[in-house]
């Protein structure tokens, strides 16, 4: 069963047709990758899913409900979490505080005027946050300012923050962009583990073919705003259209 259903989505920026009649169906508890050359419309598509952009045409259904016209925080509360290309965390706050915020968001919703009780007295949130940090191997850094962490740690924290909300769909926007090989492999292992341990659907946008072929069960290839092919990784690898549109153009990415 498809948890995310994108139908005939189109988006135009001035004279540029960024997305043209995109159809995409992501099956529940699968890992679906969206690949394509630069400017193919991958990020535009992702922004249409999370409420940052509203498509001109078509529909986006998540678990049978339309996400169109909803604000990013409402879509998040429906169960879609997003990991950004450059880790978006609360840099001025400590790692522990970073971890507690999504726990509060999960427990209390989009707004709660909880202004008198102290943070440390919220045992359930503190325990959950500590558990998540332990799970992600970040517990030693709990008192650190999040901004002073390494890029790999920031990425892990961001993923942990998304997972703390128990999302049903996790969107990853080039999660290994700008990472060293070792960090990339760690991230792949982490995502594999998440996939095994949780009932979660992962949709990933990625340039790095190594990442895509180690994780994805299905791949959609996007070129010039239109899906070219959708198939299993094995078939995608040998597909002539894909080679022409993507791999042929950027040999180094293969």
């Amino acid at each position: 069963m498809a948890i995310l259903e994108v139908k005939n989505v189109g988006k135009r920026f001035g004279g540029l047709q960024a997305l043209n009649n995109v159809n995409l169906s992501v099956a529940e508890n699968s890992c679906h990758a969206i690949i394509g050359p630069n400017g193919a419309g991958k990020s535009t598509l992702l922004n249409c899913l999370v409420g940052k952009l509203i498509p001109d045409t078509g529909s986006v259904m998540f678990d049978g409900q339309s996400v169109l016209g909803r604000k990013p925080y409402e879509i998040n509360q429906m169960g879609i979490s997003r990991v950004f290309q450059t880790p978006e965390i609360f840099g001025d706050l400590t790692v522990m505080e970073n971890m507690m915020i999504p726990c509060f968001a999960k427990r209390d919703g989009a707004f709660e005027l909880n202004a008198i009780t102290s943070v440390t007295s919220q045992r359930d949130v503190v325990e959950k946050a500590e558990h998540m940090l332990e799970d992600m191997n970040l517990i030693d850094k709990r008192g650190m300012h999040a901004a002073s962490m390494s890029r790999g740690d920031k990425r892990r924290l961001e993923i942990a923050m998304c997972l703390a909300q128990d999302p049903r769909l996790l969107l990853l926007d080039e999660p290994t962009a700008g990472m060293a090989r070792a960090d990339t492999n760690n991230t792949i292992d982490l995502l594999k583990r998440i996939k095994d341990e949780r009932d979660i659907t992962i949709a990933i946008i990625e340039h790095d073919m190594h990442v895509v072929f180690s994780l994805a069960e299905r791949i959609t290839v996007l070129a010039q705003g239109t899906p070219l092919v959708e198939d299993t990784p094995e078939k995608i690898k040998g597909h002539p259209k894909v080679r022409e549109a993507y791999l042929g153009e950027s040999q180094d990415a293969a």
Partner: peptide, 21 residues
Amino acid sequence: SPFGMMLRAVKSNQQRMNYTG
């Protein structure tokens, strides 16, 4: 309080707040 922590989060990164529901 948790409210105070959220206010500091507003200062730190509104984008992340929005995408944290």
